[in-house]
Write a protein that binds this DNA or RNA. Structure first.
Lengths: 342, 342
DNA sequence: GTAACCTATGCAAACGTTTGCGCAACAACT
DNA sequence: AGTTGTTGCGCAAACGTTTGCATAGGTTAC
């Protein structure tokens, strides 16, 4: 029971006194093998419980039928949801998924890329670390003909394949809603400067203000490191203003959670004294009694599904998406405001 | 750049006019190879960017340095947290992790096991589907010498390796707290009958009642399918009783969320008219203003870490944990009540 | 001077599978 | 009878690496 070797194609060949090539072909239903032989082979294979050794095939075919996924953190619902989507598509293609959590650590990201290359994955999906600003480790994969598709947290360059989410669309919806409700002073609580997401938010914030003919006012723009205490400080700063904003765009739902608590602590009322719009559309809002006016959904699942489909396109049609003759595979999903006030 | 073959050991051998075996040994620092040769080989290897083809090695060594993880659902924080723990340990052992979501579907679970076997993973970690009641698909892995360790949702049998969580300890703490606070009628909102977790809870519920000399009262025991509407019905049923319970043990935190909403809707006050104790210790409580008295933590991360260490023990010492001469690897972690009222 | 022993290297098999090519045997045409 | 075609199968190479065994040349020991 221990080291009893698994049945191989040779075993079958020996039993039937045919060659291994015949067996191999018979098992694949190759037309050049006679019907009787094919049947006999398949019967024996069944009997002794033969199963092809995938390792051998991977080795020979130089494919592993495995894709690698590199994400910052599995514990964020956004990414676990994305991973779910990836797994769904991979399964349809009979592929396996191996994962690596970068934990938002650039060095780890590099190590994981190395590891995936060692493992000869057939493709890689990546959502970047917040510190990633060089991309040699990914470029390196080209040497091994390992295609890469980025999603959500993507490099700021054009010569790549990616799927990302356009925050502007959702934000425009949100801003329209605020303006319609009469808000004229709309603040911003942004994230740490080094995050790409932070830059994005300030850009669309400005665009939205402009679109609605509202002035830019540095006083009502603050930022947080995303630490709880810092989140509280940020909202307190806004609340302390002589002329405080009546609505605030907030970096994400987690920050809003702290803001809401702080507003209550200050004896003010959310959605009356001050309203919030945020990003993420966390499922927990369903259970909260105090929630932002709306949150902007970035469709983790859809993003990852499309990214995975792109990846398989590149795997299946070598050359696709390498920007040589074929164009890069790029897609931007519109974000959407989810209105909680309905 | 496209199909340029990767450098192999042969390549190096040719360049140096030595045999491949010499190269192989030199690269491993084998003592029987002369110092100069070793150096020359390593230098060339470096130069041409040689990297061992892991697929070839996996094939030859009959190992893939990959473990498989089968869990019901990545989107549950419990499991994504568990997966995090698994990945941590796997990384320490230089192993990869491939995942499979059973989506609580028994047939999918079987398919995933098949797939992992095909992929020749070196071991498997499993948390069962709620419908899993037969285990042939796992037993089958023994033929392939693929060790299996179960965690959290484990089979109800003794001849396995597992890590699980003992709900009783946390529950005793909780019950003690309730009794101390003067509660005498302590109800139960349990899950669907077919879940192992449901049976567990009713057992420990009875034990705890007995321990505290409280009577069993079928009237204050209800159950829910875990659907939102059903959760609400369950709590409403209790609230409607002439002599309603003053405290309720609830299947998990998600159910409590609905219960809290229903209590409020009924014009009653949580923690005054009725108190809750639950399971899961979800992180979101931190942000809620109305929360249960306490929730029982089941330590997903610790469970998975220990389970993974067991798995590596089995991988590294063939025979370990197979219950032959060596004992099964089994561990039970005590759950712990996390007191939110402090 | 020859037996015994290192040292450094090469040979070849093995892991399991796929596949291009070749070659029988037989059938079907001229 | 000779050519051509078809059918069914085997041979052997190839994928990249590791490793037991053999061996050549050199040293030491008696």
């Amino acid at each position: 029971m221990q080291k009893n070797k698994l049945p191989t194609i040779k075993e079958i060949a020996k039993r039937l006194n045919v060659s291994v090539s015949t067996v191999s072909r018979a098992l694949h239903g190759h037309p050049s093998i006679g019907l009787v032989t094919t049947m006999r082979v398949q019967k024996i294979a069944e009997e002794i419980g033969y199963e092809a050794n995938k390792s051998a095939i991977h080795f020979k075919e130089r494919k592993t039928y495995t894709i690698g996924v590199i994400i910052p953190n599995l514990s964020e619902p956004f990414f676990s949801s994305a991973l779910s989507g990836i797994e769904d598509i991979a399964e349809k293609h009979n592929y396996n998924v191996i994962i690596g959590q970068s934990l938002d650590n650039f060095e780890r990201e590099k190590r994981i890329v190395e590891n995936m290359k060692d493992h000869r994955v057939d493709g890689v999906l990546v959502s970047l670390t917040k510190d990633t600003s060089t991309y040699e480790h990914f470029e390196n994969l080209k040497k091994y003909n390992i295609p890469v598709v980025f999603f959500d947290r993507v490099p700021a360059r054009k010569d790549i394949n990616f799927v990302a989410c356009n925050l502007l669309s959702g934000m425009l919806q949100a801003m329209a809603k605020l303006v319609k409700a009469g808000h004229k002073r709309i603040g911003l609580i942004n994230g740490p400067a080094k995050l790409a997401a932070t830059l994005q938010r300030v850009e669309i914030y400005f665009k939205c203000l402009k679109e609605n003919n509202l002035p830019i006012d540095q006083d009502i723009m603050v930022s947080t490191s995303l630490a709880k205490s810092d989140n509280v400080k940020a909202i307190q700063k806004l609340l302390a203003l002589d002329e405080r904003p009546t609505a605030v765009i907030v970096f994400n739902d987690y920050v809003v959670l702290d803001c809401i608590a702080a507003v209550k602590a200050a004896g003010l009322e959310v959605n009356k004294d001050i309203s919030f719009i945020s990003f993420a559309n966390l499922p927990i809002w369903e259970y909260m009694d105090t929630l932002p006016l709306a949150s902007i959904e970035q469709f983790a699942h859809s993003q990852s599904v499309i990214a995975t489909e792109y990846l398989f396109k590149m795997i299946d049609e070598p050359g696709a998406g390498y920007g040589t003759d074929k164009p890069y595979l790029q897609h931007v999903i519109d974000s959407e405001m989810i209105d909680y006030s309905l």
